[in-house]
């Protein structure tokens, strides 16, 4: 599981997203046919209905911006750069709102409903997480 040919990179947590060798990324979510609802991260029980007929799905990588801010001081347990963007995006197809890092760390440069795309984001020590840009 590498991106850009770097072998020492590791995902921040197993099971959150798939990384392609070409640098692509996709979030791994769940879908319950009985509740008809998607969720993220993937669970074995639908968090909205309790249904257990969960299918593993790759969530759509395009979204719109629903809420955003910037974190200006490092919170506990975080040693990445500050400020960093932080917000909620709405995945168009799944009607699911996802809490996420944002590539843009200046809140004044964003607006409600802006189209965004999922990207891989590098943190210190070769850690890779997801963000929307």
């Amino acid at each position: 599981m590498t991106i850009d040919g770097a072998a020492d990179r590791r995902p921040i947590h197993e099971g959150l997203f798939e990384l392609g060798a070409d640098g692509s990324i996709a979030l791994i979510g769940g879908y319950s046919p009985t509740s008809t609802k998607y969720h993220f991260p993937l669970l074995d029980t639908c968090p909205y209905s309790g249904a257990t007929d969960i299918e593993r799905v790759l969530l759509s990588t395009d979204a719109t911006l629903w809420a955003w801010t910037a974190v200006t001081a490092a919170p506990p347990g975080y040693n990445g750069p500050v400020p960093y963007g932080f917000g909620v995006v709405e995945l168009g197809h799944e009607q699911l709102r996802v809490i996420t890092r944002l590539r843009e760390s200046d809140p004044t440069r964003l607006e409600f409903g802006r189209p965004m795309t999922l990207v891989a984001e590098e943190l210190p020590d070769g850690v890779v997480t997801w963000a929307f840009a």
């Binding site: 921040i12 801010t69 919170p75 506990p76 975080y78 960093y84 943190l123």
Partner: peptide, 19 residues
């Protein structure tokens, strides 16, 4: 991992709700 990824910033959640 949520702390490591910067997703455990309590005031940021307050800020999103405020917005």
């Amino acid at each position: 991992w949520r702390e490591e990824g910067g997703l455990a910033a309590t005031p940021a959640y307050f800020a999103l709700r405020a917005q």
